[in-house]
Amino acid sequence: MTAPLSKASLTAGRRPVLITGGAGFIGANLADSLAAEGRDVLVYDALLRPGVEANLAWLKDRHPERISAVTADVRDAASLAASASDASAVVHLAAQVAVTTSLTDPVADFAVNLGGTLTLLEALRRRPDPPPLVFASTNKVYGDLADLTFRRVGDAYAPEDPALLAHGVGEERPLDFHTPYGCSKGGADQYVLDYARSFGVPTCVLRMSCIYGPRQMGTEDQGWVAHFLIRALEGRPITVYGDGCQVRDVLDVGDAVAAYRAALARIAQVKGRAYNLGGGPANAVSLRQVLAAIETIVGHPLALSFEDWRAGDQRYYVSDTRRVAADLGLPPPLPWRRGLDRLAEWLAGSRGLSLETRSVPA
C-alpha cells in the first residue's frame, strides 16, 4: 500500500472519475471509454491480479493527459479517502472476486469486499456534496437458486418455469447469500443501497452476470470465458467443474461499460436502485456450448476433463434485463458468438499467437 495521492499529481483544477479496481478488466475498459471522451480518470488499484499492470500501462499510453493512478488497496482507508476527496463520480469495482478464495480466506474476503466498500461509502458521506457511486455487485446475491427446478435439454439446463425461461431472474428475487464471497458482496450491495436511503448518497447497484471481452485475464477461478479461450489458444487442457451444462448469460464488456456510464448519467433517476446486468436470454449459453464454439474458433478439439461441482455454483442463472435496459436506455447487447470471436482475436494478438480469422454467425 502507498501513501495517499498528492493532488498535484492530478491534472490541475479537474475533478476525476474515481474507478476503484480501475486497472482490472472492466475498469480499464471503462477508464478508456471515459478518457476518450475527455473525462479525467483516477485509477485506484492494488495491482494484485496478474496482468493488470499491462492494462494500466495501456491506459497511460493512450491517455497520458487524462489518466492518473494510485497503487493502493481499498483496505488503506487514508489512501482511499484522499482519492475520493475530489472525485466527481465513483465506480467501485475493486474486490476479491473468487468464490474459491473466499472459502480459503474469508477474513480477507470480508475486509476487501465489505470493509473496503463501507470505508469508501463513509468517505463519500463525509463530503458536503457526495458524488454518485455505482457499485459492481454480483448475481451470487441470489444464492444457488436451489428452490427452482431445471431440466437438461441437450448441452444446457433450462428452467421448468416458462416465465423464468423467457425473461430470466428479476430484481424481485429474494436475496440468499451463499459462500463467504456471496456474503461479503451481498452485504456490500445492501450497504450501498442503504447509504442512498439513510444518508442521501446517490448510489446505484449493478448485479452482474458473466462479463467477458478484451483485456480480460481469465483464470480458473474467475473470468471463465477468457480462461477457456486462453487454454485453447495455448493448446493446454481445460478443467470443467460440474457437468458443463450450467448456463450463464454472458455480456460483452462494451455493453457493461455502456451500462455503468448510463447509470452515472442517470443517477438522479436510478439512485437507490439495484439492477441485474447480463446478456439476458438472448445471450444465455452453457459452458459446453461456449467450448464447442471455441473449438470452431481455434480449429482443433479441446482436451477436457471434469471435476465435481464447486460450492455455490448455480445450474442456471440468466438476468432479466428488461428493467435495466428500460431505465438506463440500453441497446440490445452484442451477440455472444461475435463477442467470443472478438475476444479470441484480442487474446491471440496479445500473446503473439496466430489465429485464422473466421466468420462467426450473429
Rank of each mutant, 00 (worst) to 15 (best):
T2Q: 13
A3G: 06
A12V: 00
V17S: 08
G22I: 03
G24Q: 08
F25A: 00
G27H: 01
D32V: 00
A35F: 10
L47C: 11
P50F: 13
A57K: 05
E65D: 15
D86F: 00
A87C: 02
V97C: 09
A98G: 05
V99P: 02
T100N: 12
F110Q: 12
A111G: 03
L121N: 08
R126W: 01
P128Q: 05
P128Y: 02
P130R: 11
V134T: 09
A136E: 05
Y142H: 11
L148R: 15
F150Y: 15
R151V: 14
R151F: 07
Y157H: 07
P159G: 10
D161N: 12
H167K: 09
G182T: 04
K185E: 02
D189A: 08
T203P: 10
L206A: 10
S209M: 06
G213F: 03
R215P: 01
W224N: 00
H227F: 12
F228M: 03
L229Y: 09
L229P: 06
L233E: 11
R236F: 02
I238M: 08
T239K: 11
G242S: 15
R248L: 15
V250P: 03
D252C: 14
G254P: 12
G254R: 13
A265C: 00
Q269P: 00
G279P: 04
A282L: 05
V285L: 10
Q289W: 05
E295V: 09
I297H: 04
H300A: 13
D313I: 07
V318R: 12
S319V: 08
D320E: 11
R322S: 15
A325V: 14
W336E: 01
L340Y: 08
S354P: 03
L355R: 08
L355C: 07
V360H: 03
